[in-house]
């Protein structure tokens, strides 16, 4: 018994070191973003800021004040919220229908959705951006239609898995009591599906928020930039990249994610595990 305890301690120490190494890249960006522009260079990248090189929040103020950061943040937030809301409502309804109504149509739809999950984005990227242009779906206000279409596969697939586990009797009872299908779904099933909604919502939100290629191709880059587009643009367009504000903007996009994660990690980790079991 004693031996086991000490080996447990050894493993805890090893894991602690691994965990520290794991978060190191983020901390490195954090403390470099607090240095003065002149003090950021490859030779001293691993040293902490000292009073001489400490710049306070100057880089952060520059990054937030720079053209486009706040509007990018707003676009990213808006696109993520509308897309995830659309995916959750539309796909859960669709999944409920195709699990409850058996028939050729449901089956074909189901397999099409599953198929779409495997197809790489490069297959459709050109034609999708052209379709979006033609249908005027190329603004942040309605790009959610595209996200709904391209993200439907995973969402419908996951919802189908969970709807199967809801007893039909509950719904039949509601129907006998006079509910129409819409009422049955919105008054009964939606509550049973709540945990799944959270899981699917988190997975889709992570995807939309971090997505780079789809908005780059669909949106007009001169007018609208999401956060990943802004970071890529930041790097690509200047002759000399200003490292300070660059690292500050990286931190500004990473910190909210970490806060959301720490607040909702119970759901996020559950969502990942649940998504995988059904996937």
């Amino acid at each position: 018994m004693k031996k086991r305890k000490s080996s447990g301690l050894v493993w805890t120490i090893i894991l602690t070191i691994a965990a520290l190494l794991w978060v190191y890249p983020i901390f490195m960006i954090l403390f470099n973003s607090l240095k003065k522009e002149s003090a950021i260079n490859t030779a001293s990248a691993f040293s902490l800021p000292v009073p001489d090189t400490f710049a306070g929040f100057e880089n952060y103020i520059n990054a937030i004040g720079s053209k486009g950061f706040l509007s990018s943040l707003t676009f990213s937030l808006f696109i993520t919220l509308t897309s995830v809301a659309a995916i959750l409502i539309c796909c859960s309804m669709c999944a409920w229908y195709i699990t409850r109504v058996n028939g050729k149509l449901s089956q074909i739809l189901y397999y099409l959705f599953v198929f779409s999950m495997v197809v790489p984005f490069q297959m459709v990227m050109f034609t999708l951006s052209q379709t979006a242009d033609r249908l005027k779906l190329n603004t942040p206000w309605n790009i959610w239609v595209i996200y709904l279409g391209f993200g439907a596969g995973l969402a419908v697939f996951m919802f189908c898995g969970f709807v199967k586990s809801i007893p039909v009797e509950v719904e039949e009872a509601a129907m006998i009591d006079g509910c129409n299908p819409l009422q049955t779904f919105f008054l009964i099933d939606i509550h049973i599906l709540k945990p799944t909604m959270i899981s699917v919502g988190i997975l889709e939100a992570m995807w939309v928020w971090n997505d780079y290629l789809l908005p780059t191709l669909v949106l007009d880059i001169k007018k609208y930039k999401t956060i990943p587009m802004l970071i890529q643009y930041f790097r690509g367009s200047y002759g000399k990249v200003e490292m300070g504000p660059m690292m500050a903007s990286i931190m500004l996009t990473v910190i909210p994610i970490i806060i959301v994660y720490l607040a909702g990690q119970k759901y996020i980790i559950k969502g990942v595990a649940a998504g995988a079991v059904k996937g």
Binding site: M93, I98, S116, V119, M123, V124, T127, Y147, A152, V156
Partner: peptide
């Protein structure tokens, strides 16, 4: 129930896929 998702799916996947 089905049409909103299906329409978006046609626009966002089926049509671009076949066209591609």
């Amino acid at each position: 129930f089905v049409l909103p998702t299906f329409l978006a799916f046609v626009i966002g996947f089926i049509l671009p896929f076949l066209q591609g």
